[in-house]
């Protein structure tokens, strides 16, 4: 059972790992690889703006799954026998597979985080530069105020004229009772 788990881990890690990085990071301890997630986020975010500075609208590609690797029955048999024969070797294999899998998953996650941060940055820039709504509110306020003042002014002018006419007619009527 243990060997089956090991094999599954090994195959999946092999499938995820690209051929160049697998050998180098395989020997890294689990602790250092977990810690590498945070600095790599910084490194990722540091490199993303540089790329984004040239082409601000170009999306950062998220790596897709690599093509499946054809299993080698002879290598599998040899690996199973070796792991069953030496439990310490089996433990090292399991740890190596776990580390490689973790590193790859972290790399994908960091890329996603960089994309998320860039989206936030883009939204921030859009909102920060967008003066359309403030201008609309300002215009609305002035239009209503100007309309109301115009309404008041015209009403007062009409009333003044009407009062003057009525007074004139009444004065004329009282002076000339006929």
């Amino acid at each position: 059972m243990r060997s089956i788990i090991c094999l599954v881990l090994l195959v999946s890690s092999t499938a995820l790992a690209d051929s160049g990085s697998a050998a180098g990071s395989g020997s890294a301890p689990a602790g250092s690889s977990a810690g590498s997630g945070v600095p790599s986020a910084g490194a990722g975010s540091g490199s993303a703006p540089a790329a984004g500075a040239d082409t601000p609208s170009a999306p950062i590609p998220i790596p897709g799954p690599p093509p499946p690797v054809e299993p080698n029955p002879a290598a599998r048999k040899a690996c199973v026998e070796a792991m069953n024969g030496d439990p310490a070797f089996a433990d090292r294999i399991v740890k190596t597979a776990e580390v490689q899998l973790h590193d790859k998953l972290m790399a994908v996650q960091v890329t996603k985080d960089v994309c998320t941060l860039r989206d936030h940055g883009d939204s921030q820039a859009d909102v920060a530069k967008n003066k359309k709504h403030v201008l609309m509110a300002y215009i609305a306020m002035w239009l209503v105020a100007a309309g109301f003042v115009m309404f008041l002014w015209r009403k007062q002018q009409a009333l003044k004229v009407e009062i003057a006419n009525l007074r004139r007619d009444l004065d004329a009527a009282t002076k000339d009772p006929k």
Partner: peptide, 28 residues
């Protein structure tokens, strides 16, 4: 706070320049 980071809150959390509407809307 995001799941993994503290991020600049967009949407209603951060209005930036648009928040200036507040100075007319609330007094009115």
């Amino acid at each position: 706070p995001n799941e993994r980071h503290v991020v600049l809150a967009t949407g209603s959390g951060s209005l930036f320049f648009n928040q200036k509407i507040f100075f007319w809307h609330v007094p009115h």
